[in-house]
Design a protein around this nucleic acid. Structure first.
Length: 823
RNA sequence: GCCGGGAUGGCGAAAUUGGUAGACGCAAGGGACUUAAAAUCCCUCGAUAGCGAUAUCGUACCGGUUCGAGUCCGGUUCUCGGCACCA
């Protein structure tokens, strides 16, 4: 052991020894309790950033602690390595995406190893490798066989900058999630996965996830957007056609004074052509088409619309109501047609006000502050029915069912459920992704590539223009496929899959990463799944986490896995900030992990990041805070360095003699207790570390005493090192060796708390008068309530407080507190 | 607008079940050691008054429950995040 704490030398030394001894390798072991700890795998951008370091440091502490506690811990790492940046880099540097990706992975692997994370590297998964995407393609075909994958022409989100389509989830505020360019619409034939079939289960099973943050569950609920309502069929006057609307407020049917269709609705086309307002309607449609989604959905925009010339008939009142087209009705939701009830829907109110349509109140608020006959805005809350024939006087909520049932009897209504969730568009017009393993035969339509011909490899003879169609289309041979049914030439799909598919099942491949005959063995997956703890950024709250849940449910239905939910517990870590904002190149406030490792060592970087804030919160990077963490580690190093020669060969048996002995034993065991609870229970690493800091402070004072108990001190040193090992493993290995102990600290059993050392002879109790702190006195521990009160009240200090006063009441918590109520 | 978090010293934060508010650390100030500096060690560190023991106030704001509230309840303000013309 050197005198000075040389982090770099120590870290390189122990990383080498861990690798040589291969101590983080795991296999299925039915004898041991398993624990699957997963951190979100990174995109191989080339360099780790502090967010990664935080994510993986949190995971590593938990993984290492549980390993020491005897769990069989699966703690894997890999790379989500398909995606656009590789393709852009390929265009820019005139290289192949695989070359760029592979060298980035090499570099990041080095960085991860340099940080000392306890991964089983034998299980590394890289999604761009054929041995992975082969099974991605196999899974896609399984989805297709079950009718969960289909190709359809639709207006889709198109990013003009990335030159590809985007899933709804990838459009944020009308802009491309990746590059921020405003998204436009394009009519394209694309592949979809039928996630909407799983909407109910994805929603309902959120209740089975108590270990997920409420925030994430709420976001998913909102995204799925389930709403129950009624579909009602309206006759069109002078036509044999009908319009069906969707409403959650069937109770307001009597108040319907107009109807609105989405301008893109096919039925609207037919009506426009023969309604006598064709010119006006065409102009309006054109006006709407020119608007971007952002403009169109802006709430501040005044309502617009155009009368079609047709009238619908209200099935309850037989009243004729005008039919409009207006852009506030969306094509993709419900039936694309809405009944206008201005009195009880704000949007309809605005529309009716603009076009001078009737506002008929049908729900009476029963409140003085709302005059239903002179509404300033729609009244959307509950009340009693009025102006509604035989339903008058009913609670409006009861009227919803009553009206629906009556209309059902007439065969013109039914109960329905609508979702905001849309099917998942997975085609991407890009090269660097998993090829969609389908061929198109003129006679047999879309057919999957036979299983024995998988993987469909990415062609290498392509041009990266970054424009328009998938670069794969430039390959001379790729498109030449064969129909598996008739054997005639068939055209191969040139689009690739959204990379979110790759990451929707990687956690299953980790369980069996080298399997060449299946995507994963059920036996192995059943042993490890589900993931006991998943850790990653909140930015994946919807996309990745929803898709992975969907995949797991489909695989469950296929009988490939036994769990319906992939991630039992979820921890979403906060961002790493510098000077109050997210680290970014444009702001110039990036702190590179490499620099910190070089200057202070990996242990300091890990310690600081875990100590500075609880994991869910944002973490403000502080250079002086990093100094402080380094200082603490130096202090620990010095403590053990100084004590090692004295304690190395001392037996770890002792009895507690002096008051100081007891204090040290108390500090030691309470630290063990707190660290154990904070690390694997609450995930509050900051308080765990502060508990260890207190222990170190106590040990420093103790060692200066004249009369020290070497056995106790030796034991404290051992346990201090073991407790700290999951946080800062390198320095702890060095200290463990310095203390003359055998084996790796990382492989020792977790220290256990000796509860008897936590029992004190005397404890400090506080005395309050009318709730205000007045005195602190030492009392023997373990007194009964009566004895405690008697002891405290008999003390001189307390007597002085009550002297000449009228004591009304005494409340006590034995050993802790006594409150005297005085009048 | 709807939903979900937050608000505690100069700063990051503790307070786990309603029971000593500010643990632990950073910064700052003072001191020891040193020719000097670094490193290290010791002390002070919410506000006000006081030499001091101590007293009063203090967890965004107003009110309530309670012997006792940072914690529970009602209301308000500010703030962060998500969703949003979804009928």
């Amino acid at each position: 052991m050197k005198e000075r704490y040389d982090a770099q030398a120590i870290e390189v030394k122990w990383q080498k020894r861990w690798a040589e001894a291969d101590i983080f390798r795991v296999t299925e072991d039915p004898e041991k309790k398993k624990y699957y700890l997963l951190e979100m795998f990174p995109y191989p951008s080339g360099n780790l950033h502090m967010g990664h370091v935080r994510n993986y440091s949190i995971g590593d502490v938990v993984a290492r602690t549980l390993k020491m506690q005897g769990y069989n811990v699966l703690h894997p790492m890999g790379y989500d390595s398909f995606g656009l940046p590789a393709e852009n880099a390929a265009i820019k540097h005139d290289t192949h995406p695989a070359v760029w990706t592979s060298s980035n992975i090499d570099n990041m692997n080095m960085q991860l190893k340099r940080l000392g994370f306890s991964y089983d590297w034998e299980r590394e998964v890289q999604t761009y490798r054929p041995d992975y995407y082969r099974w991605m393609q196999w899974l896609f075909i399984e989805f297709w066989k079950r009718g969960l994958a289909y190709k359809k022409e639709n207006p889709v989100n198109w990013c003009p900058s990335c030159q590809t389509v985007l899933a709804n989830e990838q459009v944020v505020d009308g802009k491309c999630e990746r590059c921020g360019t405003e998204v436009t619409k394009k009519n394209l034939s694309q592949w979809y996965l039928k996630i909407t079939d799983y909407a109910d289960r994805l929603l309902d099973d959120l209740d089975e996830l108590p270990g997920w943050p409420e925030k994430v569950k709420t976001m998913q609920r909102n995204w799925i957007g389930r709403s129950e309502g009624t579909e009602v069929e309206f006759k069109i006057k002078g036509s044999d056609k009908t319009v069906t609307v969707f409403t959650t407020r069937a109770d307001t049917l009597f108040g319907t004074s107009f109807m609105v269709l989405s301008p893109e609705l096919p039925l609207a086309e037919e009506l426009i052509a023969s309604g006598g307002f064709e010119k006006e309607c065409r102009e309006y449609q054109e006006q709407v088409r020119r608007m971007s989604d952002i403009e169109r959905t802006s709430l501040s925009k005044e309502k617009t619309g155009q009368f079609t010339g047709w009238y619908a008939v209200n099935p309850l009142t037989e009243k004729e109501i005008p039919i409009y087209i207006a852009d506030y009705v969306l094509l993709g939701y419900g039936t694309g047609a809405v009944m206008g009830v201005p009195a009880h829907d704000q949007r309809d109110f605005e529309f009716a006000t603009k076009f001078g349509l009737d506002i008929i109140p049908v729900v009476d608020p029963g409140r003085d502050d709302v005059d239903v006959n002179d509404l300033k805005a729609a009244f959307e809350a509950e009340g009693r029915m009025i102006n509604s024939g035989k339903y008058d006087g009913m609670e409006n909520e009861a009227a919803i069912a009553a009206i629906r049932e009556d209309l059902e009897k007439r065969g013109i209504a039914k109960k329905t459920v609508n979702y905001k969730l849309r099917d998942w568009l997975i085609s991407r017009q890009r090269y660097w992704g998993c090829p969609i393993p389908m061929v198109y035969c003129e006679e047999h339509g879309w057919q999957p590539v036979p299983e024995d011909q998988l993987p469909v490899l990415l062609p290498t003879d392509v041009e990266f223009t970054g424009k328009g169609e998938s670069p794969i289309a430039t390959s001379k041979s790729f498109q030449n496929g064969v129909c598996p049914i008739c054997g005639k030439p068939a055209k191969r799909e040139v689009d690739t899959m959204d990379t979110f598919l790759d990451s929707s099942w990687y956690f299953l491949r980790y369980c069996d990463p080298k399997n060449e005959s299946e995507a994963f063995s059920k036996e192995k997956v059943d042993y490890w799944m589900n993931v006991d703890q998943y850790i990653g950024g909140i930015e994946h709250a919807i996309l990745h986490l929803l898709y992975s849940r969907f995949f797991t449910k489909v695989l469950y239905d296929m009988g490939l896995v036994s769990c319906e939910e992939p991630f039992k517990n979820l921890l979403t870590q906060g961002m790493v900030l510098k000077d109050g904002s997210k680290m970014s190149k444009s702001l110039g406030n990036v702190v590179a992990p490499d620099e910190i490792v070089e200057k202070y060592g990996a242990d300091t970087a890990r310690l600081f990041i875990l100590f500075a804030a609880p994991p869910e919160k944002e973490l403000e990077w502080s250079d002086t805070g990093v100094d402080g963490s380094f200082r603490f580690l130096s202090r620990v190093y010095r403590l053990v360095y100084e004590l090692a020669p004295q304690v190395a060969s001392v037996p770890r048996t002792y009895t507690l003699e002096t008051k100081e002995d007891k204090q040290l034993a108390f500090a030691l065991n309470s630290a063990i207790k707190r660290v154990s609870a904070d690390v694997t229970g609450r995930f509050n690493f900051n308080t765990a570390i502060s508990a260890v800091m207190e222990l170190v402070n106590t040990m420093y004072s103790y060692k200066e005493l004249d009369d020290i108990n070497l056995g106790l001190l030796a034991d404290a040193c051992d346990k201090l090192v073991l407790m700290l090992c999951p946080f800062v493993p390198h320095i702890c290995e060095e200290l463990w060796e310095g203390l003359g102990r055998e084996g790796f600290a990382s492989e020792q059993p977790w220290p256990e708390c000796d509860e008897s050392a936590l029992v004190k002879d005397m404890v400090l109790a506080v005395v309050q008068v009318n709730g205000k702190l007045r005195a602190r006195i030492d009392v023997p521990s373990g007194l009964s309530k009566e004895d405690f009160e008697a002891y405290v009240l008999a003390s001189d200090e307390v007597k002085a407080l009550t002297e000449g006063k009228n004591v009304v009441k005494v409340i006590s918590v034995p050993g802790k507190l006594l409150n005297i109520v005085i009048k």
